[in-house]
Amino acid sequence: MRITKIIAVAALCVLVSACSSNDELEIPDLPEQEIYEDALEALELDNYVLAIEKLQLLEARYPFGRYSEQAQLELTYAYFKNFEPEAARASADRFIRLHPNHENIDYAYYLKGLTAFEQDRTFFIKYLPLDETKRDPGAALDGFDSFRSLVRLYPDSEYAPDARKRMVHLKNRLATYEVHVAHYYIQRGAYLAAANRGRYVIENLQKTPAIPAALAVMVEAYTLLGQVELADDAMAVLNANYPNYVYRPVKESEKTLLDAATFDLFRGAPEAPAPVINTLSDEEAEEKRSWLNRLSFGLFGDDGEEDAKETQDK
């Protein structure tokens, strides 16, 4: 009886293995060109899942075929369109490493940068009013490096103009992010770290809209550190290059015990904003006063501050 059971189990194992072998043999051995054309057709129909499957099959069956190199580029593009950024960047890196002299290697650099560029642009960033400059720019840095490599190595590439435009956007974003971090450090009392962030923007991210804000951060941080000479130097540069810039201090005045107990109900008026950087002479200030201001002896204020705010917004 025991021998009969053993024979039955062995027969069952043989049948199962035979079925598995038959299933494997049923997979058609398609020609390389046919698989590649099926992948391209799937890409044209925006069926990226099927395209990835076909391109992976092509690479597995014909790793040294006539379409293997181009198929790797197509696979990178399919990963990118299918929202698989890690796979897309890994595929681009692999192509660059294996085919450094390929005629379309500039496209690999472009796809790598484009993948990183779009990685941060999630659904919420695209359709909701969120400030992306306050988010971690890790992917933005990777995209900037890839675009920079493309422009440096292949300046005449057809993808270079678009890469340059995206580099400008990423550079502005990185500079603004550094200023946000500097503001955070000032609020937390890390004044030296804030000054270093501002100096990094000045030295490495020039020609960005965040330059005056970075200089102003340095002025405030060095002032709070007691480094008067360094603060004066930063102020001189700010005055010379951005005379209409208006800066409001980041550091908030400390709350008293009464403020905390009354939830700021009796707290004094907030500190006045820092004066306009381009301080006017007495004669210029007199000319700038409106007729209503003169007639009312300054009772109704002046439009100078509003003009300065409008200049800053512009």
Rank of each mutant, 00 (worst) to 15 (best):
D145R: 07
L215R: 00
Q206S: 10
T115L: 02
G138R: 14
N104G: 09
I105Y: 07
R121W: 11
L128F: 15
F147D: 01
M235Q: 13
A182W: 12
H102V: 01
A234D: 02
A140S: 14
F124K: 12
S157Q: 13
E118Q: 10
L238W: 06
Y222F: 12
E118V: 09
N101T: 05
A139M: 09
A193I: 09
A194D: 01
R166W: 04
D142Y: 09
N101D: 09
E132R: 15
A231H: 13
A160F: 01
A236P: 07
A213N: 13
D145N: 11
K112H: 05
R166S: 08
D106L: 06
A190Q: 08
V179P: 02
N204K: 06
A194P: 09
L215S: 00
D136N: 15
T115E: 00
Q227G: 02
Y127C: 04
A140H: 15
A190E: 02
Y159M: 13
Y107A: 06
A236R: 15
N104E: 03
T115H: 00
P212V: 00
F124T: 14
D106S: 10
L114Y: 13
L238E: 09
T133P: 14
D120N: 12
A213W: 03
M218D: 08
D156R: 13
F144V: 01
T133Q: 08
N196W: 05
D136R: 10
L224R: 06
V179F: 03
P155Q: 11
F117Y: 10
Q206A: 11
L192T: 09
K171N: 14
V219N: 01
V179R: 08
T122S: 14
A221K: 09
P209E: 12
T208C: 08
L225I: 13
D233H: 07
A194I: 01
N239I: 06
Y222I: 04
Y177R: 14
D233A: 15
R121C: 07
L215K: 02
H183F: 14
N239Q: 15
E229P: 10
N204S: 00
D142F: 13
Y154I: 03
L170H: 02
A163S: 13
A116K: 04
T223Y: 12
L224N: 05
L111E: 04
A116P: 01
Y185V: 01
P137D: 00
F124L: 15
Y185I: 00
A194K: 07
N101E: 15
G226T: 10
E203V: 02
A213D: 07
L238V: 10
V181N: 00
P100S: 02
L225K: 03
R188G: 01
R148Q: 11
A210S: 09
L225R: 13
L225V: 05
L225T: 04
A160S: 15
Y191E: 02
D142Q: 10
A108R: 06
L205N: 01
P100M: 03
N104K: 10
L225F: 05
A234P: 03
D142S: 08
G138S: 15
A195C: 08
N204L: 00
D131F: 08
E118L: 14
A210I: 04
